[in-house]
Simulated assay, not measured.
Amino acid sequence: MAERQRELTRTLLGAIFLGGLIVASLWILRPFVAAAIWATTIVVATWPVLLWFQARLWKRRWLAIAAMTAVLLLVFVVPLALAIGTVVLNADELLTWLKSMASFRMPTPPDWIARLPFIGSKLTLAWEQAAASGVEGLLSRAMPYAGRLTQWLASEAGNAGVLFMQFLLTLILTALMYASGEAAALVVLGFGRRLAGNRGENAVRLAGQAIRGVALGVVVTAVVQAALSGIGLGMAGIKFAGLLTAVVAFLCIAQIGPSPVLVPAVIWLYWSGETTWGTFLLVWSMVVVIMDNFLRPVLIKRGADLPLLLIFAGVVGGLLAFGLVGVFVGPVVLAVAYTLLRAWIDDDRLDP
C-alpha cells in the first residue's frame, strides 16, 4: 500500500513538474509564437517550390534558400511598394482632388434608382439628403468617427515597429526551417507517432496537406483576383489603380473579396458619364468577383482532399478567432479534428 502511494506521489509530482516546464517554456517563447506559426506555414506551403529551386540551382540548398527569401520579400514588399509609389507619384494630383472635394456638389439621383423595388424610395431620399447637405454636411456627420479613426491610426502607427520586427523574425525563422526542413519533419512525425501511433503520423501529414491546400486556395486566388482587378481598373482609367490593387490583394486574403473596391469604381464611372467603361468594368468585376467560387475549390482540392465547407469554416472562423494567421490555423485544426473523428467512428463500425 505504501509503495503504491509513493508511486502515485512520484507520478503526480512528475506530471506537475512537466506541466510547469511546458507552461514556462511557452511563456518564454511567447514573443516568437506568431512568427514561428507564420514561418511554419510558409515553409510547409512552399516546400515544393524550394525543392524546385534547389534542383535548378546546382542542388545547393543555400542558393535555393536565398532565392526563396528573395521571392518572399518580393511577395510582401511589392504590394506595399506599389501602394506607396502610387501615392508618391500622384501626390500633387491627390492633393488637388482632395481640395476639389470641398466644392463638390452631388447631382440629383437618376430616375432608375427610384424605380428599384423595395429600396428605391429609401435610396432616393438618402441621396437627396446627402445632396442637400453637401460635403460640409457629410463631413460634420463623419467627424465623430474621424476622431476614433485618428486614435486607431495613432495606435497602429505605434505598432508599426513591432510589426516590422515580426516580419524580419518570420523571414529568419523561415530561412532556418528551410535549411533543416527534413530533420524537423522527422521530429514532428516521430512526435505524432509516439503520441497516437500511425494515426498521429497521419494527422501530422494531414496538417501539412491542409496548410498547402489553404495556401493554394486562398493566397493564389487572392493574387489572381488582385492582378485581374488591377488590369481592369487600369484599362478603365481609374486613378490610383496601383494603390487599389494592393488594397484588393489584402481584402481577398482576408476573405472579404474585391467588391469593396470594384463596386465603387463602377459607380464612379457611371456617375462621371463614362458609360462604356463603366459597363466594361461592371462585366469585368462580375467575372473577378465570382471566379473564386470556381478557382478556390479546385486549388484547395489539389492540396488536401477535404470537404470544402470544412475548409471554408476553418478559414473564416480562424480569421475571426486568431486574426490573419487564423486563415491557416483554423483549417488545420478542423482538418485534424475531422479526420480523427472519422477514424474513431470507423473503428466503432469495424468492431464486431
Rank of each mutant, 00 (worst) to 15 (best):
V162M: 09
V218H: 04
A175D: 07
A321Y: 00
G85A: 02
G273Y: 06
T275H: 05
D92Q: 14
L320K: 13
T41K: 11
R148A: 10
G257T: 02
T9V: 03
V263Y: 06
A321K: 11
G237A: 14
A210P: 10
I253K: 02
L233C: 12
R302I: 14
Y338L: 02
T279H: 05
G158N: 04
T46W: 04
T41I: 15
F104S: 00
L72S: 11
I238L: 04
T86Y: 09
D347I: 00
L80H: 10
A179G: 05
M101W: 10
V187R: 06
A81C: 10
A227D: 03
L168T: 05
A146C: 11
A15V: 05
E201M: 09
L243A: 15
E128F: 01
T124S: 12
Q225T: 15
V135N: 02
A265F: 09
L319G: 04
A34H: 02
R115P: 03
G278Y: 02
L281A: 06
S103A: 13
A249S: 05
L243R: 15
A207H: 06
F104P: 00
A210V: 06
N159T: 15
G237W: 04
R61N: 05
V288Y: 01
L72Q: 09
L82A: 10
V33R: 03
G242L: 07
C252H: 01
G14S: 12
L244K: 13
P307M: 09
V188D: 07
V204Q: 04
E93Q: 15
V44Y: 04
V188F: 08
A215R: 03
Q166Y: 08
L63P: 06
A215V: 01
L138W: 13
F294A: 14
R194D: 14
L173E: 04
A114P: 02
F32E: 15
S140M: 05
A335R: 00
N198E: 09
G314E: 07
L306A: 07
L149I: 11
E201P: 02
L125C: 12
L13M: 01
T174G: 01
R61Q: 13
L94S: 07
F104H: 13
G120P: 00
R56V: 05
F294K: 12
L50W: 11
R6V: 02
